[in-house]
């Protein structure tokens, strides 16, 4: 059985750019839009790349800035300087 990992982001200016970066880097991502927030589900694994987000936002982006936009997550997290991964290991 494939499990979805998931991230929910605020519908803010930064949030829109981050969502666009996630969609570009994760072809299997499914996006659901709600009032004030967007939920993205993806089978097994989802990657957020610093460079893709920077490209979308047109400025430098420290991945810890995700703290300002993230509403909820589901999955094991691994963050380093360049990317944040969400994954289920099974």
């Amino acid at each position: 059985m494939t499990s979805n990992v998931s991230i929910t982001l605020q519908n803010t200016d930064d949030g829109r750019g981050i969502v666009a970066a996630i969609i570009a880097d994760n072809p299997e991502a499914v996006v659901s839009t709600y009032p004030a927030m967007t939920k993205i589900d993806c089978p097994s694994r989802l990657i957020m790349n610093k460079t893709s987000i920077e490209q979308q936002l047109g400025r430098e982006f420290d991945l810890h800035e995700l703290n300002l936009t993230m509403v909820s997550i589901s999955g094991n997290v691994d963050e380093d300087d360049d990317r944040l991964l969400l994954m289920w290991n099974v």
Binding site: M1, S3, N4, S6, S74, W88, V90
Partner: peptide, 9 residues
């Protein structure tokens, strides 16, 4: 769904 994935893991 969400909890199911978690406990599956």
């Amino acid at each position: 769904q969400g909890g199911g994935a978690l406990f599956n893991d």
